[in-house]
Amino acid sequence: MKVLILGGTGVISSQISQQLLAAGHEVTVFNRGSKSLPDAGQYEWIVGSKADGETFQRQMAGRRFDAVIDMISFNEPDARLTVETFRGRVPQLIFCSTGAAYKRPFRTTPVKEEAEALFDDPAFPYAYDKARMELYLQSRIREENLAVTIIRPSLTYGVGGANLGVLRQNYNIVHRIRQGLPLVMFGDGRLPWSFTFAPDLAKAFVGAVGNERTYGQAYHATSEENRVWDDLYGEWGQILGAEPVIVHLPTDLLLKADPDLFAHLHYEKSYAGLFDNAKIKRDIPDFQISLTLRDGLRMMLDWYEAEGHTLDEGKMRLEDELTAIHSRWSREMEELELS
């Protein structure tokens, strides 16, 4: 099949591109042209930006594809442009949404798609805008019977990503564990979560292409390994051969320390992240999780060391300051207890 990926070189979309190619599809990638892919010559490349809607529509005029996978729509106007550009010319549109688009607290645990409402608090724009995008797409499904498939990843890590850890600091975690420096964890670290890796998630998108069972449907696609948040750093310690020093801080205090950096903890990750994959396995039988948390972190470490990653000095200072505050507070509590 001829598949167009809007994006195609990101953490998740690069895995989708490669898996589509391996499955024998003819793949066209549309993006700004700032990144490449392995075996780049096997793809058709279109350089552009959806931010310039008129130019985007001219570039796509007359083009025929069997499916379009949109990885770069983050709100209703983005999705509307994709729908209006390809309506009537492409049999299937597949959109990447997010598990953050579910309203918290959940109604079900593990989460079931059909039982949940969508996020409705504009205070967390990422989740709110994705939810609004989905509401628009669902209206097109109802009113036009448009063949739209929506995939909702939860927290997903992968090569090229900069979102690992509480501070989204990536390589800093490895450095701090090796140096015996403390790491900040939100809450008590015991909240259940399923950590997913991009090579597994990509199977959901590839399995949806041309799959009529997925038309008009929304799915989450996550790991099924039941872990808690402390395990993220504990597994790093096992891989590196050093026990991590984990400092637990309340989420509301972290939010006050840096509202932009820690909003994802307050609005999304303060609730258990366990998802029921029964629906996607029913319609996409090839969706099977193969990477454990340790497997995925080893993959990340291989990437860090192969590319010689550097530290995020700003986040290093912030983590030092936060753990120092915790240390002072702990001493004061001990003194209060002794008095």
Rank of each mutant, 00 (worst) to 15 (best):
L93I: 03
R142Y: 12
V27S: 02
T108P: 00
D260H: 12
M185R: 10
L293Q: 01
K269C: 03
R282F: 07
A22T: 06
K281Q: 11
V209Y: 01
A115E: 13
Q42V: 12
M71G: 02
E337F: 12
P38D: 15
R168N: 11
A202R: 14
P105I: 06
R32C: 05
G216F: 14
R132T: 08
D295V: 02
S97L: 10
L274V: 15
N75I: 14
H326P: 02
Q138H: 05
V90E: 08
I69H: 08
L118M: 14
R89N: 10
L6Y: 15
I5E: 05
V184K: 07
L322S: 14
D312I: 01
G237L: 03
L232Y: 03
K203Y: 04
T149L: 14
R142G: 10
R132A: 08
L93F: 10
A100G: 13
W193E: 00
F186N: 12
D286R: 06
L261Q: 12
D129L: 02
S14Q: 03
I173V: 11
G41I: 09
L254G: 07
L167I: 04
F262D: 04
I12Q: 05
Q169I: 00
D121M: 11
A221L: 07
E321L: 08
S36Q: 13
E44D: 14
S139F: 09
I284H: 08
E332K: 12
R190N: 06
Y128M: 10
P77A: 15
D200L: 03
A263Q: 14
T149F: 07
A79W: 01
V206W: 10
G33L: 03
Q169K: 03
T292S: 11
T310L: 13
F95L: 02
E332W: 08
K256L: 07
F195S: 06
L164P: 04
T55L: 15
A278Q: 14
L240C: 01
A79Q: 02
L201H: 00
L318A: 03
A162E: 06
P259F: 07
G24D: 05
A147D: 02
G296H: 04
Y171N: 13
D39Y: 10
S270L: 00
P110G: 00
D188M: 06
E334V: 14
W329D: 06
P244Q: 10
T85S: 05
A324C: 15
D231H: 09
A263F: 11
I150D: 01
L232R: 00
T55P: 00
T310M: 03
F74N: 03
A100I: 09
A117T: 11
L254N: 05
V83L: 01
W193M: 11
A257V: 09
W329G: 10
G41Q: 13
T108M: 02
